[in-house]
Simulated assay, not measured.
Amino acid sequence: MQLETKIPLGEVRGRIDHMAVDQKRLRLIVAELGNDTVSIVDLARRSVIQRITGLKEPQGVGYEPSSDTLYVANARDGSLKFFKGEAYEAAGGIDLGGDADNIRIDASAGHVVIGYGEGRLAVLDAATRKRLGNIPLKAHPESFQLDPDGGRIFVNLPDAHAVAVFDSASGKPLANWPMDKGGNFAMAIDNDRNRILVAFRRPPELSVFSMVDGKRIATVDTCGDIDDLFIDRKRSRVYASCGSGFVDVFEIDGAVYRRLSRIPTASGARTSFFAPELDRLLIAARATSTEPAAIWIFRPLP
């Protein structure tokens, strides 16, 4: 990978959490948890054009294009806030009750799914923004992924040392896969190979499982404090971003996952977003004593 540029975020302090893309406007949405703000970054102009303030530890962000709505999940008060249109104007919200976290957009079903609390997934109707239901879990959900082909939701439950599988339409549990390692925070879905990738922090490893029965296919060491994981379908690669200050790049060769490179970033830069439409990996680097907070843009090679 080649570091293409760094986009300064300005006066942003503390931890930076998840990101999303408003593809229609070519904008990156950055949850600045420690700063109680969300930044809107114009990727064409490579600059911050707006900052949403007054939030309470924003963790998850998601942009739903059909309703032109930005969703922001707040950890401190458990609220889910809505912002509409070109200027992301405040449009209300709902109270989820605590620790609102990851957001996923289910475009085919017209749903927005949010992990929150001690163990719940809230399902909202994207058109009306009304809550349709809740899926109970055994523990707080970290990364979860939607399988558009199989109608399933795969959920990382690190406190329960498990990956739970649910029917996305009914919310009924389909399977529970016990994990023999700790800190399964990051997850990616590989539809081309019918596999789920789960990254662990204790010890730092990437494991690959069959989506059919949960059987482990491969395991490989990773960088430490991993938080995000993405599949590059074009190149048959995996990108893993870590708070230890690295991005690991893996090549997929059948059932073998081979590390191609370990790219230095910055300490604490553990959250990332891979945008296939842009063919770029975006890394969120928090402010240090010598460097301001910034979005690092990497271009995959070749």
Score class of each variant (00 low, 15 high):
68 D>Y: 14
75 A>E: 15
76 R>I: 10
76 R>W: 12
77 D>Q: 08
78 G>W: 01
80 L>N: 04
80 L>V: 04
80 L>F: 02
81 K>M: 12
84 K>T: 14
85 G>S: 03
87 A>F: 07
87 A>Y: 13
88 Y>E: 14
90 A>V: 02
90 A>C: 08
91 A>H: 10
91 A>V: 01
92 G>I: 11
92 G>R: 06
93 G>I: 12
93 G>A: 11
93 G>T: 07
94 I>H: 00
95 D>Y: 01
100 A>R: 08
101 D>A: 06
101 D>W: 05
102 N>V: 14
102 N>M: 09
103 I>Q: 07
104 R>T: 06
104 R>G: 04
105 I>M: 13
105 I>P: 13
106 D>C: 12
107 A>C: 01
108 S>F: 12
108 S>I: 12
108 S>N: 12
109 A>N: 13
110 G>W: 07
111 H>V: 07
111 H>P: 05
111 H>N: 14
113 V>S: 02
114 I>M: 06
115 G>M: 09
115 G>F: 09
116 Y>R: 05
118 E>D: 07
119 G>H: 10
120 R>G: 08
122 A>C: 10
122 A>E: 08
125 D>T: 03
126 A>F: 08
126 A>M: 04
127 A>V: 10
127 A>S: 15
128 T>L: 06
129 R>K: 15
129 R>Y: 04
129 R>I: 00
129 R>G: 00
130 K>I: 07
130 K>H: 14
130 K>Y: 07
131 R>H: 00
131 R>L: 11
132 L>C: 01
133 G>K: 07
133 G>C: 01
134 N>H: 09
135 I>A: 02
136 P>G: 00
136 P>Q: 02
136 P>K: 05
139 A>P: 03
140 H>R: 14
140 H>Q: 14
140 H>Y: 11
140 H>I: 03
141 P>E: 05
149 D>K: 10
155 V>L: 03
156 N>T: 02
157 L>W: 03
158 P>L: 15
158 P>H: 13
159 D>C: 10
159 D>Y: 15
159 D>A: 15
163 V>A: 02
164 A>S: 11
164 A>H: 00
168 S>E: 08
168 S>Y: 05
169 A>S: 12
169 A>D: 08
170 S>D: 12
